[in-house]
Write a protein that binds this DNA or RNA. Structure first.
Length: 489
RNA sequence: GGUCGUUUGGCCGAGGGGCUAGGCACAGGUCUGCAAAACCUGCUACUCCGGUUCAAAUCCGGAAGCGACCUCCA
């Protein structure tokens, strides 16, 4: 914790020194997935972004409680029949229980996130499991006078709230009066006093399957209530970090602030963090654009836009090569570049482990550790951390080529840097490593010995046959000064 | 239409008043039986138009492109 971490706070639009409310404890809440479809790239970005935040805070010695919710109630499908719940609709079509659908996609989400090396949060609460808490929140807002009931539904009174606190719009930079004067003819708005008012509790229409009893009607909670209710329950009235995608800034997070302020007089958290969006070939990802690619399709390469499969770690590395507040554009060319770059770093780590130490170091490696910290401390600048590792990789390879030397202490220091920053904090792992058993290692060593013997005899036909056959199996043979090494591709 | 953000070399992307980002691709070289890998060298860019400044990719103003959001629901 002796590092000074600066975090860009959306609320102030500035980088601010991170000071936890009650160190060493840190509370972090991140908006999780709506489980009504297969996880796609849009799920990977925030998950990986805040995974790195989670990992880095832990690395710094903080005790972090990381809460990421599962939204499993009340969603509508695009252009679906009015009032029909997304999950309920799908459930009916497939003759499944709504919760069965939610569970299925929750499992799919977990599988994809595990593959991406995203750590599970400390608590992963389901909206459907916290209906009581949400009803209590709505009641508190009603009691405070910032909500009204209308035809069995309850709405937040944005006008009154803003007149009293002047806070509505502070996060998203929206001007309330313009919004209140916006005229937009939409269905179901006649229940609301102002178009800007948002639902806290919604009376269920007859076709709704997911519904709960409440003091106002049989219905379901408004979208914004789950995060406020669950955040408060598990992290307290005020916690340190609230994260999510930029697309959630308005209205979701703005409304969360309003709900919490209405009840407690202050917002839910100290630092608001927002990750930017992802585009594919410069375009927004959308089902109608034909570039909607699920994570599984990336992993298997089974999509017409993909030239090849991209492993989970390639996706993770690629996302981390851009800063989380920048948009990141996926293309085959960019992903292939990331894949090669990552291989280079992972290979250099293996090379490092086999490096012969010298009595003196001809390169000064003492500065890299703080450079990596500096990058992370500057609002989690992972691309800079990665660029330092490319420098380190060059040092390692140069030493391996006998053009530079390192002492054992310096080799150990570099190993420690890889372990800390590349693997623990950035969460990368060598996907090829680990599935090699001792038997495979032994067999490979024997094969390479045979090939070395053939080479010594200038029997190129045999040595090339071995190399080609291994290559066909996805194993690359690399000849070096110390003999050949191999690598799974 | 409104608000906010963004625009960097063949591609991806950091940086953000004067100082090489980095990766990938490409070209030449070293090494090698050949290839790959590794190393060396080259390719050195900031959308456009004005302005401020000794100095602008970086600050200010404007334009254009792109993107998000603009509350039915989540």
């Amino acid at each position: 914790m002796n590092q000074e971490l600066y975090i860009y706070n959306t609320l102030s639009r500035n980088k601010e020194l991170f000071k936890p409310l009650s160190a060493p404890h840190v509370g972090m809440y991140v908006c999780g997935p709506t489980v009504y479809g297969d996880p796609h790239l849009g799920h990977a970005r925030p998950a990986i972004t805040f995974d790195v935040v989670f990992r880095y805070l832990q690395h710094l010695g903080y005790k972090v409680r990381y809460v990421r919710n599962i939204t499993d109630v009340g969603h509508l499908e695009y252009d679906a029949d009015e009032g029909e719940d997304k999950i309920a609709k799908k459930a009916r079509l497939e003759q499944l229980e709504p919760m069965e659908v939610a569970q299925y996609y929750t499992n799919r989400y977990h599988d994809a996130m595990d593959a991406l090396g995203v750590k599970r949060p400390s608590i992963e609460p389901h909206a459907s499991g916290h209906i009581m808490e949400q009803i209590e929140l709505v009641q508190k807002i009603l009691d405070a006078g910032y909500a009204y009931e209308s035809n069995g539904s309850v709405y937040f009174d944005v006008r009154k709230y803003h007149d009293d606190t002047h806070r509505y719009g502070q996060l998203s930079g929206r001007v309330i009066d313009e919004m209140l004067s916006t005229t937009r003819d939409l269905d179901g708005q006649n229940e609301k006093r102002e178009t800007a008012d948002f639902a806290l509790w919604k009376k269920a229409s007859p076709e709704h399957i997911m519904r709960w009893n409440s003091p106002w009607s049989v219905g379901f909670p408004g979208w914004h209530t789950e995060c406020t209710a669950m955040g408060t329950k598990y992290l307290g009235e005020t916690f340190d970090i609230h994260g999510g995608g930029m697309d959630l800034m308005f209205p979701h997070h703005e409304s969360e602030i309003a709900q919490q302020c209405a009840v407690t007089g202050h917002g839910p958290c100290k630092y608001w963090m927002h990750n930017n969006m992802i585009t594919i070939n410069g375009q927004k990802m959308g089902k109608s654009l034909g570039n909607f690619i699920t994570l599984e399709e990336f992993f298997t390469g089974q999509h017409e836009k993909l030239e090849q499969a991209y492993s989970p770690m390639t996706i993770r590395f690629f996302i981390l090569q851009a800063h989380y507040r920048s948009t990141v554009d996926f293309s085959n060319e960019a992903l292939q570049a990331a894949e090669k770059g990552m291989q280079r770093l992972l290979q250099s780590y293996k090379t490092l482990k086999g490096l012969a130490p010298s009595k003196n170091s001809s390169v000064d490696v003492s500065g890299y550790r703080q450079l990596c910290y500096d990058a992370m401390n500057d609002d989690f600048n992972t691309p800079i951390v990665i660029s330092h590792f490319f420098d380190i990789a060059k040092v390692v390879n140069t030493v391996n080529d006998r053009k530079a030397t390192l002492t054992q202490a310096d080799i150990d220091e570099l190993r420690s840097l890889y372990d800390s920053f590349l693997f623990d904090i950035l969460g990368l792992r060598d996907e090829a490593a680990g599935n090699n058993t001792q038997i495979v290692d032994g067999l490979m060593q024997m094969i390479l010995d045979v090939r070395a013997q053939a080479k010594a005899n200038k029997d190129w036909a045999t040595s090339d046959k071995i190399r080609d056959a291994l290559s066909a199996l996805g194993i690359a043979v690399k000849d070096g000064k110390e003999g050949a090494t191999w690598e799974m591709r």
